[in-house]
C-alpha cells in the first residue's frame, strides 16, 4: 500500500479514520481561523488554541476553475489530463467559512446552501513515492 502524507501539516487531523478541519479559536474573543494561527485577526490578541472544526458545512459561495492554473499550481496533472474543479467557501458549524476545492465541477451540481462534507484527496507523489494528500469538500448525500 502506498504511504499517504498530508501535503501540509496542521490543516486537517491526520492520521485519522474520520478527519476533520483544524483551526484556531481565540481564547479572548472566540473567533475562529483556518489554518490555525497564533494571533487573532478580530481582536489583535495572540492567545489562541488549535481546535477541531468538524467535517461538515454548507456551501456559502462557489465557482469553477476551468483551466489548469500556472505555477505555483503543482500536481501530477498535465494540460491534457487536467479536470476542471469547483472552488468554494464552506460555512462550518462554528460559522467560519473555509475555502476549499470541491469535487463537484458543473453548474448543475453546485448551489449556494447545499450541505457539504470533507474528504481527503491525493495531490501528487513526492520524491520518495509517497502520495501527498489534501482536503476538499463534496456534496453530502442524504442519509
Amino acid at each position: 500500500m502506498i504511504e499517504q502524507k498530508p501535503l501540509h501539516d496542521g490543516l486537517f487531523s491526520w492520521p485519522d479514520s474520520d478527519p476533520e478541519i483544524l483551526g484556531s479559536r481565540c481564547n479572548e474573543c472566540g473567533q475562529h481561523a483556518f489554518p490555525p494561527q497564533s494571533s487573532c485577526r478580530n481582536c489583535t490578541g495572540n492567545n489562541t488554541s488549535v481546535v477541531g472544526l468538524g467535517r461538515e458545512g454548507k456551501l456559502w459561495t462557489w465557482t469553477i476553475q476551468t483551466f489548469m492554473p500556472k505555477d505555483p499550481y503543482l500536481t501530477d496533472e498535465t494540460p491534457e489530463t487536467f479536470v476542471p474543479y469547483g472552488v468554494g467557501y464552506v460555512e462550518l458549524e462554528c460559522g467560519l467559512r473555509v475555502e476549499s476545492r470541491l469535487r463537484q465541477n458543473t453548474t448543475a451540481d453546485l448551489a449556494i446552501g447545499m450541505p457539504m462534507t470533507l474528504e481527503i484527496i491525493p495531490v501528487r507523489k513526492d520524491d520518495q513515492g509517497a502520495e501527498l494528500v489534501t482536503f476538499q469538500f463534496t456534496k453530502k448525500e442524504p442519509n
Binding site: 465557482t63 500536481t75 468554494g88
Partner: peptide, 17 residues
C-alpha cells in the same frame, strides 16, 4: 505553499465567488 499548489491562489476565483 499548499494554498498555491492545490489551485486556490487565483484572483479570478475570488472575484467570481
Amino acid at each position: 505553499d499548499w494554498y498555491g499548489e492545490t489551485g486556490l491562489m487565483l484572483t479570478t476565483q475570488f472575484f467570481a465567488m
